[in-house]
Simulated assay, not measured.
Amino acid sequence: MKKIFAYLVLFTILLYGCDESSTNGVIQTDGSTNQIAVEVVEVIDGDTIKVKYNGDIEKVRYLLIDTPETNHHTLGKQPFGEEAKQRNKEILKSGNVTIEFDVGNRLDDYGRMLAYVYVDGESVQETLLEEGLARIAYIFPPNTRYLDEFEEASKVAKERSIGIWETDNYVTNRGFNTEVLTNNNAEEKSTTEQCNIKGNINRQGKKIYHIPSGKYYEQTNPEEWFCTEQDAIQAGFKKSGE
């Protein structure tokens, strides 16, 4: 009976490893900060990759960050999603890739491994945050080992208003609000459409402006656009005398 018990203990250690435990089928770790070398097989987007780990192909979801989508079934393609993916790919190609697990769950609800990702010892998550290509998200204790460092990196991008922080309210607590950018583009287009007075400089060097109802408006190639006739006059242009 003792031999059977010993075999069962040995089998459990071999199956889960001495640095892991399993609770309700969810694999957890003991908090080791060891970095494990992996081979990147595919870059799916800015925060998800496929790697060869222990001889198997596994999906890895970056801990504590979220990047805009590139091909989501409902959200579609979000601004800066492709930039985040390409930058992620560029970083991962630049050196040796390792992953590190935190103290909590190793797998998410989709079976993806949750990890911190490094290239030559440098955090990929911190780089993406600092360059304005990711937001801090999915904070589920106890997997929060580098939250303070990540918040500092994100602060740099926010203060510089770069990437996802270029437009106010694009980044939200629930993700990325594409409607903000759509509305801004519509407002810019509306403003451009109102500035429809054409300023032209003829061969004699005379500055002439043409309004939409003018005879030569359609055939005129503008050097400048004006929103009002007063703007054109102040710029030294005279109204076409057709």
Rank of each mutant, 00 (worst) to 15 (best):
L129T: 04
L129R: 02
E130C: 04
E130P: 00
E130W: 01
E131G: 08
E131S: 12
E131T: 04
E131D: 14
E131F: 05
E131L: 07
G132S: 08
G132W: 00
G132C: 07
G132N: 00
L133V: 06
L133C: 10
L133E: 03
L133N: 05
L133Y: 02
L133A: 01
A134T: 00
R135I: 07
R135L: 06
R135W: 09
R135E: 05
I136K: 03
A137P: 07
A137W: 13
A137R: 03
A137E: 01
A137F: 15
Y138P: 00
Y138N: 09
Y138A: 09
Y138T: 08
Y138V: 11
Y138F: 15
I139E: 15
F140L: 15
F140T: 14
F140H: 14
F140Q: 13
F140G: 02
F140R: 14
F140N: 12
P141F: 11
P141C: 11
P142R: 08
P142S: 03
N143F: 02
N143I: 07
N143H: 08
N143G: 08
N143P: 02
T144W: 09
T144Y: 08
T144M: 05
T144K: 07
R145Q: 12
R145H: 10
R145A: 09
Y146M: 05
Y146H: 15
Y146Q: 07
L147M: 13
L147I: 15
L147C: 06
D148L: 12
D148C: 07
E149R: 02
E149C: 06
F150D: 01
F150V: 04
F150M: 11
E151F: 08
E151S: 13
E151A: 12
E152I: 12
E152L: 14
A153R: 00
A153I: 05
S154E: 11
S154F: 06
K155A: 09
K155Y: 12
K155M: 13
K155G: 04
V156D: 02
V156K: 00
A157W: 00
A157N: 06
A157I: 01
A157Y: 01
K158T: 02
